[in-house]
Amino acid sequence: MTMVYEDHGDEISDVPMRRIRFSVNGQKKIAEVEPRLLLAHLIRRGLGLTGTHMGCDTTNCGACTVLVDGRPVKSCTMLAVQADGREISTVEGLATASELHPLQEGFKEEHGLQCGFCTPGMMMAAKALLDENPDPSEEDVRWALSGNLCRCTGYQNIVKSVLWAADKLREEG
């Protein structure tokens, strides 16, 4: 993997680089990163996984939400170097080659998106909720998604989509 950084005229030897090991969607990776690289940039530019979106870049919108060791994190607000030794899950890890994840099916069935920009973050925040609480109430879902902004849907169908997925996952056992 090659990362390209802005050249600020420092001596090349003064640019601190760190080698990190981590996994993304179950695949083991090694990366060489400058400490100031954000996790979102490692995922999007380094790994080419552009399903993780950058929205506000200020820790508000939640579009860049990924799971780090199973817990939801805004990847614009974590340094890539901190992923050393961690397991990262992104929206690309939800579906298999042949099947959508129940969350993805739910968003399709219940029309949980319009422009789709917030959707990857919504799905990852929802996944963290369902992993912890397989039978959430509507209020639980609204609460869990309250750090993710959507400017299209008014949230109604997103909440329905997550509840749909919860039902499906429970049926599948």
């Binding site: 820790t59 939801p72 994190v73 925040a125 309250s146 750090g147």
Partner: peptide, 9 residues
């Protein structure tokens, strides 16, 4: 405090 995702970190 903040929002649920910020609270995990």
């Amino acid at each position: 405090i903040a929002d649920p995702i910020v609270r995990t970190r």
